[in-house]
Design a protein around this nucleic acid. Structure first.
Length: 573
RNA sequence: GCCCCCGUAGUUCAAUGGAUAGAACAGGAGACUUCUAAGCUCUUGAUCUAGGUUCGAUUCCUGGCGGGGGCACCA
């Protein structure tokens, strides 16, 4: 039983004694550490029902709680309008420290999703189009959610869904046909980038040139039906090349997908399904197209086309095929999560309703998690218009900044330097995305996205590297960590034990930013502690051993927390 | 027009209905013969607006103003 559960039980017991059984109350950490470790509003919440003023109720609750003699509680006090503040005892912090050290890399993990099988789909870049900072956002959030879910004991399947058919592909192929392929001697990512530019060009032609538009539509149909040898050849080459380029980015970002779904497959499956359920009345014909009138089932939704008048499946129809593939591959799936930017909300909402009409059993098993949009200061980013910041260029720039800052560090060999610089560069980018609440848009700012000081990824990584260095030195000096309960409890310790509950909150709300915010608090507390206390002190081994135990626990919390964000924790930087 | 999201320091972001609204950057001031200064300490500065619910509202509800996204053959 956790300390929070224990305190809640004690409060419930005390309330029962006053005749206020079942009143709902909160137990939280006060914003100010000086107010104590936990606080409850139980007196405020029950005052009305008891017909007494809150301070009076608080006094009675306080007596009852004191009488319960909870060993982990050192003192209790009434504050403000009637809060009861709990201050935890040294014994509690001693055992918390012990628990962190013994749990090590699994500290922060839980069993709250044990036995669940969950699939999560994220990133979704499209072959033939650039991998831009919006994909970086989806990947960072999706990867972090994956790790949080995994750490909660679920069996997790990471999947990616890539749009290898559709008008965008035809536009790119048109561009390639007219302008020629990129130089084959260039690197894979460089070639992929040129294909992205050809896509933008083709897209512009589509909008401004009637002839080009007709040709692109012909190509689109040919890609779906694979009827044209020359187009097939260009298609297969471009698809393979751009997918390989994505793979290199995933590697740098630290994502490993177990399975890739493709729109081309989803499209094939979806057409007969839509036709089958057209006869069963789920879909209807309208102006030559087959549509789904979602407002019949939910007034917030609207009508969308599923099969165009040319007989091609739209994005919505493909979602049906995708759901079918997911559950055929994993029949025992408890939950299928799809993370996308919020602009997809309407589309996915309609698609899900159609899926539920086809397979009523899927209701409750599909979950659409949206995040904000990555916007440029100049407005919406659009790969159609070509004003995109590619993920790769951003990673390279960020890595370069990290590398420059690290070159004067001693004791790092060239190979490690390169690796650490990549980890720090990527850490900066990921953190800048994950620190924001997932619902909010991010206005992209190069300077801020690769920020290395203050509230940043490298700040956390730097703090971690400091600890690694201290712990290494401790072992050289033969200082063995040993928590001493005679020492004053530091502010740092008062937050270290909270990681598991923070992770729990992040899981429930699909909000990695809770972890990010918490880690900054931990790092700040440690850096403050570090400035005030000498940790390695050979003249006072006992105090030193105590501080090393705290530094080690902090390192575990930071490393594990960063891990949940998908950010690595180098030992040197 | 309809639907969804969002309005918090100069800027970028936090804050399960709780106490003095918290950081970072930018601005101002400072400490260091000591374990990594990407660090530490101090400081200036904010809840769009009008009501409502509540012991208590940045948070929930309604209206207004402002921004973003979506709304049939793109994804």
């Amino acid at each position: 039983m956790t300390i929070a559960e224990q305190l809640k039980g004690a409060i419930a017991e005390a309330l029962k004694g006053l005749g206020a059984e079942g009143v709902s109350f909160s137990l939280e950490h006060p914003t100010e550490l000086s107010h104590g470790d936990y606080a409850t509003n139980a007196a405020l919440a029950s005052a009305k029902m008891l017909g007494k003023n809150p301070r009076e109720v608080a006094t009675m609750l306080l007596e009852s709680l004191k009488a319960q003699n909870i060993p982990e509680v050192e003192s209790l006090e009434i504050a403000g309008p009637g809060f009861i503040n709990f201050k935890l005892s040294k014994e509690f912090f001693a055992s918390a420290n012990k628990e962190i050290l013994s749990a090590g890399e699994v500290f922060g993990n839980s069993r709250s999703l044990a036995g669940k099988r969950i699939m999560i789909e994220y990133t979704q870049p499209n072959p033939f189009k650039p991998f831009h900072i919006g994909h970086l956002m989806s990947n960072s959030i999706g990867e972090s959610l994956s790790r949080i879910i995994e750490s909660s004991g679920a069996e997790l399947i990471r999947v990616n869904y890539q749009g290898d058919v559709g008008l965008h592909v035809a536009k790119a192929i048109y561009g390639i046909q007219k302008k020629g392929r990129p130089d084959a001697s260039l690197s894979i990512p460089a070639q992929a980038q040129e294909i992205g530019a050809l896509y933008s060009w083709g897209s512009n032609e589509y909008d401004t040139n009637e002839e080009a538009k007709a040709e692109i539509e012909r190509i689109n149909k040919a890609v779906y039906e694979r009827t044209d040898e020359s187009i097939n050849e260009t298609y297969d080459w471009g698809r393979k090349l751009t997918l390989e380029a994505f793979e290199e980015i995933y590697k740098v970002l630290g994502t490993k997908f177990q399975h890739y779904f493709f729109e081309s497959d989803a499209a094939k499956i979806s057409v007969p399904l839509v036709k089958e359920f057209l006869e069963k009345g789920v879909f209807e014909e309208s102006d030559g197209a087959i549509v789904f009138k979602a407002e019949r089932f939910d007034p917030k939704l609207h009508t969308r086309v599923f099969l165009t008048s040319k007989g091609l499946p739209t994005y919505d129809a493909k979602e049906i095929g995708l759901a079918d593939m997911k559950f055929k591959m994993e029949p025992n799936l408890d939950l299928s999560i799809t993370t996308t930017a919020i602009e997809q909300l309407g589309v996915i909402g309609v698609a899900y309703e159609a899926i539920y009409q086809i397979w009523p059993d899927f209701r409750g098993k599909l979950r659409h998690v949206t995040h904000g949009m990555m916007r440029l200061a100049s407005g919406k980013m659009s790969s159609r218009k070509g004003n995109v910041v590619t993920g790769e260029s951003l990673i390279n720039d960020s890595r370069a900044v990290a590398l420059e800052k690290m070159t004067d560090r001693k004791g790092i060999d060239a190979g490690s330097l390169e690796r650490f610089a990549t980890e720090v560069g990527v850490g900066a980018l990921k953190y800048s995305i994950l620190k924001a609440s997932p619902g909010s848009d991010i206005v992209y700012d190069f300077e801020k996205s690769i920020s290395f000081d203050g509230d940043s990824g490298p700040y956390l990584q730097y703090t971690h590297a400091r600890m690694s260095s201290i712990l290494e030195k401790a072992s050289e000096e033969n200082i063995v960590e040993q928590y001493a309960s005679t020492e004053e409890v530091s502010d740092l310790e008062r937050i270290l034990y909270r990681l598991p509950e923070i992770v729990e909150n992040a899981l429930h709300e699909y909000a990695p930013n809770y972890i990010a915010t918490y880690l900054v608090e931990v790092a700040r507390a440690f850096n403050s502690f570090y400035a005030d206390h000498k940790i390695i002190d050979t003249s006072d081994k006992e105090t030193s051993a105590h501080r090393v135990a705290i530094a080690h626990a902090t390192q575990i919390v930071l490393r594990n927390g960063l891990g949940l964000l998908g950010i690595t924790a180098p030992d040197r930087m």
